[in-house]
Design a protein around this nucleic acid. Structure first.
Lengths: 260, 260
DNA sequence: TGCTAAATCTCGAAC
DNA sequence: GTTCGAGGTTTAGCA
């Protein structure tokens, strides 16, 4: 058997709603992906409530019963349901109704189709690995590997050090023996990052007589946050994300070699 | 001319990549919606970076060039680009490449197809109104209309009162003449809501000699947030969202009647 | 444009 | 199961 996607895909154009109901019910039972293009209205009730009046939309149901309702514009679905919800298909008078129910929190979506133009069901074979890099966590990894990126002579003592107000990203000593509290932000740092850092410093200062420096490492910083840092006598250091990506890549390549 | 969606939709099954390129290029120029089912890999570079290895996926491009790449599971797209980005289609050796570029922040997605199984392009006619209820803003509207829901004898003075740390949701006086600072959370309130409220209270207390009460109104509250409230001597009041929805509905119906 | 706070936030990890 | 923090958060509103 030739297992191309073409053989795992079926298509109906202009199906009757009766035909669609049978077809959809079957596809849902078999955990297929489903794409429906048609005219529908949508009601949602759960954490909030919404009503979407009649119009043409694309409804996408996935293998795990995740459900998306998309209009012609915008990146976000107008209505949705996350996976592990229960889906039922039924005919209601002149219409076809799809109900998706999720428990915890209880949320119900009801789609009422007056017309279905195109119906696609299929399964996707997809073992491709997805890797995202240069997250805040990745920056930490880079700084663990290359503490001199923080500053020459810096010695890290702890990462994710737990204190009362939360977790200090990096905690260590500089070349002069001062304690250093470091807060990392991957993107542009704002006031709240400065507030967070100053809270950590106050907490550390209450436990020691030594001088405590506060260092915010980020891609960049907003003006008002920078002003706040100056008045609080904190330091900002920008970090080149491309450089981090390069180091990470070299590091990961090295790790892979070790595994071979 | 019969303007059903069927006449605004075209479908290709098992198109060659050359054929696909022409077809897609045209669809992109004309701001059509596009759904591609096929085998592809994806590279993303922008605020972060990611690589998605080869596998079967659904790619959805909308009228406004919003782009979604979906795998067979999960509510969220594995990669995406918001609208108003630039899209280009090209053949690269044995493959078809879709590039989506966004400025500010600069982000690039590159999809490389080795196989396209199904290609759909269409336009959606969708004038249906979307209305969402019981947002935090809606709760404020309800409390403006029915201040006794806050407590008997409460008199609101200001909504969205601006002070240094931010905006106070509701500010007023209770029946005994005490000032009351109210923070509203639509869902379950967590520690951060309590911290926010206490910041507002400290700010108000610094401007007056009068007693200042702090009241958190929310659907519910986490245990640790509740403990924090007790130690800070703040008050919590739960609010029934269904009741709010009913009041809103009655209110909106009344407004509509006035407009007639 | 920058900044603040909400969101049907989602997601994952720790407790 | 609950809580908490981070996110390519996204998005809306306002100075």
């Amino acid at each position: 058997m030739n297992n191309t996607l073409q053989n795992r895909l079926s298509l109906k154009t202009q199906p009757s709603l009766e035909e669609s109901a049978t077809f959809l019910d079957n596809a849902v039972q078999e955990n297929n992906c489903i794409i429906i293009i048609g005219c529908c209205s949508v009601k949602y009730e759960g954490r909030a409530r919404s009503i979407l009046q009649l119009g043409e939309r694309v409804v996408f149901i996935k293998e795990d019963k995740a459900l998306l309702i998309h209009r012609g514009r915008g990146y976000k679905p107008v209505n949705w349901q996350s996976s592990s919800s229960y889906i039922s298909i039924s005919l209601r008078g002149e219409n076809l109704r799809i109900r998706s129910i999720r428990r915890q929190p209880r949320e119900v979506i009801e789609i009422t189709f007056t017309d279905i133009y195109t119906l696609l069901t299929f399964t996707l074979i997809d073992e491709g690995e997805f890797s995202l890099y240069v997250s805040e966590r990745d920056i930490q990894r880079v700084l663990i590997k290359e503490p001199k990126l923080i500053e020459e002579g810096f010695t890290p003592l702890e990462f994710e050090k737990q204190i009362d107000p939360g977790f200090i990203d990096v905690y260590g000593i500089d070349s002069k023996g001062n304690l250093v509290v470091i807060e990392i932000k991957r993107a542009k740092a704002r006031k709240e990052a400065v507030i967070q850092l100053s809270r950590y410093i106050r907490s550390i200062e209450s436990t020691t007589e030594r001088k405590v420096r506060g260092l915010l490492i980020a891609d960049s910083i907003t003006k008002s946050a920078h002003r706040m840092m100056k008045t609080l006598n904190l330091e900002f250091k920008s970090l080149d994300l491309n450089e981090c990506a390069d180091i990470l890549k070299r590091f990961d390549d090295f790790q892979k070699k070790l595994q071979l």
